[in-house]
Simulated assay, not measured.
Amino acid sequence: MIRRQHVAADFFPEAEAMRAAYDEKVGNAYRQAIEWQYFCDPRMYTYLRTAPQQVFAQPLWRRFDRHMRQWCMEHAGLVPTGEPNLHLMVNGCTLGLHSDFQNGTLGFVYSLTRWESRKFAGGETLLMRDGVPSYRKHHVQGEVLYELVPARFNQLLLFDDRIVHGTPTIQGSMDPLEGRIALVGHLRAASPVVTAGPLDEAAAREVIAGFHRSLAQPLKPFKEVQGVTSLRLAVAADGRVESVEVLTDNFVTAQSGYEADDDVAAARALVLDAAAKLRFPGAGGPSKLIAPVLLPLPDLRPVEIVVAHAGQAAVLHEALKAQLKEVEALGFRVEVQGDSFAVREPLAGTIRIESHRIVAFFDAPMWVPSQREHFQAALAEKLGMLARYAG
């Protein structure tokens, strides 16, 4: 189970191929054609970043992306949000202390840095420890206050996005081959997904939506508990839940952090007990389902976006089909199904182009309000641009 943080060593079998691709791209300054963004806010950040497709050949990148998504769903019950950035940090680069709770549930750092032979100081991921200020503590400093996680080669680090974190300033070489090289991104909850067996996914999502609604009243006494738990349910052929496995659980309170807390324990027990009592439609055999729960419970209404257009529906349909790569770059996974576009990630839903309007309809996300608002705004902007294209 993933709680505050998790390290997976030897993460990707083709890590050496990824590092070789990077070395080949940047090894000769006269042939280097990567479009780096120099991301600098002098108060907070200084580093270089680019899209991973600038460095890795498409087949290799697809294999990494598939491995990452499968691993995260299997072990965390969460999915990556869009494409990660490839970060390069050389002498003088730094990431100041910050929190990313608006970006996801867990942050991740996948390192391609030759850590054991590095020629620089700094570059670890600094994670602030929990703790309430107290006069009983005297002259605390260093790793009493924070933890430093080395960016070892082929290591995936996951950590709670609410934790204040950063990267100490790199002191050493300016050579891009000798810097800190890592893929950086975020994971968040997706719609419930059937990972094995014949259980109908749409029907399963309806059951989970009812499960979320049923939690509202019992959880009212625990309004200080916040976080995400992702559950894997083993469902028998007759629809009974045979077991509940917790994949991610970062329930905390602002007062206790990750320390033991009675309210956290009670809220967790309530969620697990309710999940164990769920009943799904019967199917032809046993199934497995992954479903998240966010506390405090978010807005449980589905997401619906309607954009008027004055064009021809068939033309718009073809235009959207041609732009799917751009849409997927926002983190969507889309399939064309007849006259509609079925979306699998980050939320299950559909986009339909009707005679005078474009309608997008999605499950209610287990996201904090700012994440939901950003999702709605980004999709509305994309659909608005499509509608204007038709006009």
Rank of each mutant, 00 (worst) to 15 (best):
G331W: 08
A342L: 03
L78E: 08
G391P: 03
L97N: 12
G284T: 03
P198L: 12
L158A: 00
V306Q: 10
L126A: 15
M128W: 06
F341I: 00
Q226N: 08
G349W: 06
L219I: 06
P13I: 01
G123P: 12
L126H: 06
R279N: 07
A254S: 13
K382L: 02
H317M: 03
S355D: 12
F101H: 11
D23F: 06
M89L: 15
A51Y: 01
G166D: 13
D65A: 09
V327A: 14
V132H: 13
S230Y: 00
K382M: 03
V193K: 07
V55S: 06
A196I: 02
H165P: 03
D238E: 15
Q37C: 03
G282D: 15
Y110M: 08
A190F: 04
G142A: 15
F222T: 07
H139Y: 15
Q102V: 13
R62S: 10
S111L: 10
R129S: 01
W367L: 03
R43M: 09
A216V: 11
N85L: 15
G142F: 08
G185C: 10
E345I: 07
T169S: 15
E147D: 13
A266F: 08
K382N: 00
E74K: 14
S230V: 06
Q217I: 15
L219V: 01
M385T: 14
E373D: 07
L148R: 10
F332V: 06
V55D: 05
A202W: 08
H212V: 13
M18L: 14
R372L: 07
Q337A: 15
D249K: 00
G197H: 13
F159L: 02
A276I: 03
L297T: 06
M128K: 10
D263R: 15
H317N: 09
V144F: 11
L60T: 06
A29S: 12
P369M: 07
E242T: 10
F211A: 04
A314H: 03
D10W: 06
R118W: 12
D10R: 13
E178N: 14
R63C: 00
N250Y: 00
G384M: 01
R31W: 09
R388V: 06
N91G: 07
I358A: 01
K25D: 02
L106M: 08
A21F: 02
V144H: 11
A202F: 12
P198R: 09
A151K: 02
T248N: 01
L233D: 03
L112H: 12
D299G: 07
R188W: 04
S355I: 07
G77Q: 00
L199I: 05
A182P: 05
A348S: 13
P84Y: 13
A319T: 10
E259D: 14
E354P: 08
V140R: 07
V55E: 05
K137P: 01
A364L: 00
I208P: 00
A51D: 14
